Simulated assay, not measured.
Amino acid sequence: MIKLSNLTKYYPSKQGRQYIFKNLNFDFPSQGNIALLGSNGAGKSTLFRIIAGSEYPEGGFVVSDNNISWPIALATGIHPQMTGRENTRFIGRVNGVADLDAYEDKVKGFAELGIKYDLPVKSYSSGMRSRLAFGCCVAIDFDIYLIDEATSVGDQKFRKKAKNALLEKSKVASVIMVSHDMKEIREFCDSAIILHKGEMNFYPDLEEAIKVYSEF
């Protein structure tokens, strides 16, 4: 369960406050894999960061009794001064991973960083940093995975690997996915939420949601 209560988020500008959401109330369905659809700038990634707790709203709050991932494909929580290995162990501790050695081996193998795993993340390319964050996330068993354009990470080989890993996760956990690729949306999701002009509407029929979204 994820509940948004009077959620308000804005960014200051020379023209005053630019609201992304204002007193937004919404209950996410508790079952199924859900697409989060919306045009660029609608606030999808901002909402993901707020749900994950990596960004705070100006008002209102998020309530959930689930263990929720950070947005997969965003290098949230990765410290540039620490090595890949140090980041992995830190993230594992924060998320209550019992066997840190096994977790570390799993992340190292998945991220495919080679010797760079023991170098500071500040020396990584953006793709390498995302692969580390992705590996750290999918190696933890969350109740809900927030997927933000995740399968665009890395080269073709890694994207295929990432996609297969997420499909496996979607069989045993819930997924909320942001993607502009409708083929990918159809592969992962069975329903959708449209975020438009600060309002959210749930569509149990995925194809109906895609049709409505395509008309914006």
Rank of each mutant, 00 (worst) to 15 (best):
S30W: 05
N164G: 04
V63G: 04
I210L: 11
I68S: 02
G53Y: 12
E208P: 14
N40H: 02
G53S: 11
S170F: 11
S126Y: 11
G96R: 09
P80G: 01
A173P: 13
L146W: 07
V62S: 05
H79P: 07
F26T: 00
R131M: 15
Y117Q: 02
K211M: 08
A165I: 03
K183S: 06
A35D: 08
N95Q: 15
S5I: 07
E208I: 11
K163M: 09
S39C: 10
E207N: 15
L47Y: 01
L37M: 04
I20F: 01
L195P: 01
F28D: 13
A35F: 02
A162R: 01
G96W: 12
N66R: 12
G32V: 10
K14E: 15
E184D: 09
I147G: 05
K197T: 01
D141P: 06
E58A: 03
D155G: 04
G77W: 08
S64V: 12
P12A: 00
C189D: 13
K122M: 12
D105N: 14
N67Y: 11
D181T: 10
V94T: 13
Y203I: 08
I185P: 10
V63H: 02
R89Q: 12
S5C: 08
R17G: 04
E208H: 13
D141T: 06
A139S: 10
E215A: 05
E168G: 07
L7C: 00
K183G: 03
K183Q: 11
R186H: 14
L100S: 06
D99L: 15
N33R: 03
T151F: 09
P71V: 01
K157P: 14
E184V: 14
V63T: 08
K160I: 13
F110D: 01
R93N: 12
I176W: 04
N164R: 15
R85A: 06
H180D: 09
T151P: 13
E208C: 05
V62G: 03
F216T: 13
A162L: 03
T8W: 02
Y117I: 07
Y117E: 01
I68H: 06
F134L: 15
C189N: 13
V121F: 02
I2W: 09
S152K: 03
K116L: 11
N23Q: 04
F61K: 08
S152G: 01
L206N: 05
N95C: 07
I147H: 09
T151Y: 02
E184M: 12
M128P: 14
K211G: 03
G109K: 15
I176D: 04
C137Y: 02
D181G: 01
R186G: 11
V178D: 10
I194W: 08
D105L: 13
A165F: 06
Q81P: 07
G77E: 07
S39R: 06
V97R: 01
Y124C: 05
A73S: 13
S54G: 12
I115C: 03
I193W: 00
K161L: 11
L100M: 04
R129I: 15
L7P: 06
D141Y: 08
P12M: 00
T46V: 07
Q156M: 11
S123F: 09
S179A: 02
D190C: 01
A35S: 10
R159C: 05
E184S: 10
I20T: 04
K169L: 03
V153W: 07
N201F: 04
E86V: 13
K183M: 06
L47S: 00
Y103P: 08
E149M: 12
A192H: 05
F142R: 06
K183E: 09
G92E: 04
R17C: 04
W70S: 07
P12C: 00
S39I: 13
